[in-house]
Design a protein around this nucleic acid. Sequence first.
DNA 1: AATAAAGTGCGGTACAGTCCGCACGTAAAT
DNA 2: ATTTACGTGCGGACTGTACCGCACTTTATT
Lengths: 128, 128
Amino acid sequence: MPEFTKGELEIMQILWKHGEMKPAEIQEHFPWEITNSSLRSYLSILLDKGHLTRHRRGKAYFYRPRTKQESTFRKMLNELTRACCDGSVEKLLCHLIRSEKLSEDDLLELKRIAEASDEEPTSGKEKS
Amino acid sequence: MPEFTKGELEIMQILWKHGEMKPAEIQEHFPWEITNSSLRSYLSILLDKGHLTRHRRGKAYFYRPRTKQESTFRKMLNELTRACCDGSVEKLLCHLIRSEKLSEDDLLELKRIAEASDEEPTSGKEKS
DNA sequence: AATAAAGTGCGGTACAGTCCGCACGTAAAT
DNA sequence: ATTTACGTGCGGACTGTACCGCACTTTATT
């Protein structure tokens, strides 16, 4: 149960970004060509799964996300960590830093964030 | 084309960890109950997709990963970043740090790694 | 009230993913 | 050479995903 299929995830992204939309609007923002029909198939599946709500306004339904981007992020991150980093967040960080995805600026930013969070730990999990 | 399906990814994990195994061995390490038959279905799919090689030893085939864990990591990370962090690695880092997944020790480690990579950038991507 | 435009519900096809049984091959043991 | 144990190949069933057309409903327009 990988939370979302490819198409479903696309829709969630668009909705997370724009907040509330009707099918035709989502269709316009969709990253590839798709008919309104297909799009609405996804929408009703997401509705069934409980990831979306909708309510009528005018003659169309407007869809709104019920599942938070944040919680999806965590699930995907957990999966990634489990699958490719043997469940270790440390390995994840190492991979991340060695992955060439980070620019010089990112590294400095990272250091800054780490120091800030280190000094003022608002949500740090205790390990010892 | 999400690279691997759930079942396929499980097998890749096991193989990444143990290096080379025959079906019966993989089956034992599989995280849930599955028949040898089903398992082998996955294996032949992975073989077709080119993610695995196999060669006979005794009367059984031994399977070995052809696709690297590292490259899978990158693809999954890209997808995660795109889907939940608007494509920004910075946001990914923020999410990560605020996600309560990191312990105090992790943060210190993070700072250490960041400093090390900062001083000796072996694979840093230029941004400016 | 008739029409046009916009939107919905429903159903349907095609293919991928998951799961399995069974007949056949192979190699060692008797 | 026959049996037994282990392993493989093949094909099948069932479910989910991706995708779409069409008939119907609703609202605004004239």
